[in-house]
Amino acid sequence: MLFCNTVPIVIFPPEIICKCMSTKHQMEQRQHCLAITKVEGIRTFLSGTLRLIHLLPSTAVQYLNYFRQEILLPVPPPTTSTAAGTTITSNTTNNNKYNCIGKATCSKEIKVGMRPRDFIQMGMALTAAVIILYIAINPPQRAWKEARKLRNFFGSSKQDQNFQETPKAIHYKCGLPKQCPLDHFAFHILSGAANVIGPKICFEDQIIISSAKNNIGAGLNIVLINGETGKTLKFDSFNMYSGKVEDLLKFMKDVKPGTIALVASFDDPGTKLTNEARDIFVKLGSSMIKSVGFRDSWVFAGAAGIAQNSPFEKHVKNEKEKNVYDGWPEIVEVSGCFPRKR
């Protein structure tokens, strides 16, 4: 019990007991007061718990003794009457025994059984003991599983029987909705958003370029992959608004047959694209590169030497009436399983 201005204050909660210490000359004692209060609260809780645990065994033993203990109740001594010179002593009544040998008073031996209330009290005491023991030996994270086992033991409703734990979500490479078949590579390409959020290219569950990696740039972001091993050969970005298209041509010049090309646009991918540069992507399987223009959104996955148009390509034109962003169209993305070169 603590006092504040000679007025006792209950020890819970700490904010109440110590709010009186808000004046300037008492601020130094406030933290000490809070610490003492919390310690006292824990001590009181533990003390009460230990007292309950201590009383439960003695209470159980007390009730169990009813089964085997004979209770001696004091009773009056046997009556003795004298009539016409004859002494009559009565030492038994209703088949009950008296113990009067060598004693001034007698005791009556009575077999006492447990009353219904005694059974209830003993059951409550034992139940409390079991609950305390269960809480002590079982961690909280096991409580739900144990509760379900107990519910199933006593029977549950049809709805509960049909209940199943939510299965853990299965992660497939690059976030695809299913696993790719053998001899295929998983990939996911996401274009940039306006000139703010950069593109992202994932191949075989490895993020190759992204804003988080700080290795993207405005224009065309290109990654070249070995079509047999799936190893990243090289990647770079080429500014198609203020850069040189010759840098793009030089980068794509030595592409060998079977090499996989992954392309994502950011900001402006088409202003400086020449016919020569566009023909390179046509040979990789692109069917939309001819129409890619200023600030369009474009993503593409193809391979050198492909005999047909690639199905992995998306293109959205920059149209003022349809643009999602101010001056730029929406984000586009493409993903799937690219066949390995045989």
Rank of each mutant, 00 (worst) to 15 (best):
D279N: 11
N275F: 01
L249Y: 02
I260F: 02
K250W: 11
K250N: 10
G243V: 13
K283W: 00
S265L: 05
L262G: 01
D254W: 03
E276R: 02
A264I: 03
P257D: 09
K272R: 15
T274A: 06
G285N: 01
T274H: 05
F251K: 12
S265V: 07
L262M: 13
M252G: 03
K283H: 04
M252T: 15
L273R: 08
S237R: 04
M252W: 03
V245E: 12
D267K: 11
N239C: 11
R278Q: 06
V245A: 09
I280V: 15
A261I: 13
N275D: 14
E246K: 05
T274L: 07
M252E: 14
E246Q: 08
K253I: 10
N275R: 06
G258S: 06
D247T: 09
K250A: 15
F281Q: 04
M240E: 12
S242K: 09
M252L: 15
D254M: 11
S237Y: 15
D268R: 12
D268N: 15
S265K: 06
Y241T: 10
L273G: 08
T271H: 07
D236C: 07
G270R: 10
M240A: 15
N275A: 10
G270L: 09
T259A: 10
G270T: 09
F281I: 05
G258K: 04
F238Q: 12
L262D: 00
F235R: 08
A261V: 15
G258Q: 05
T274G: 01
F251I: 12
N239Y: 12
P269Q: 12
V263E: 05
L248N: 07
G285F: 01
D254Q: 15
V282T: 13
G285D: 03
D247Q: 14
I280S: 05
S242L: 10
K272T: 14
V255W: 02
K256S: 10
G270C: 11
K253S: 13
I260T: 08
M252V: 13
L284C: 06
K256M: 05
E246N: 06
S265N: 05
K256R: 14
V263S: 02
G243Y: 09
A264G: 08
T259R: 11
F266S: 05
G258W: 07
Y241Q: 14
F238A: 11
K253R: 14
V282C: 01
A261F: 02
K253N: 13
R278H: 04
T259Q: 12
F281P: 03
R278C: 04
L284E: 03
S237C: 12
K256W: 00
K272G: 07
I260P: 00
F238T: 10
S237W: 14
P269D: 08
P269A: 13
K272D: 12
K253A: 15
F281A: 06
E246A: 05
A277M: 04
V263D: 02
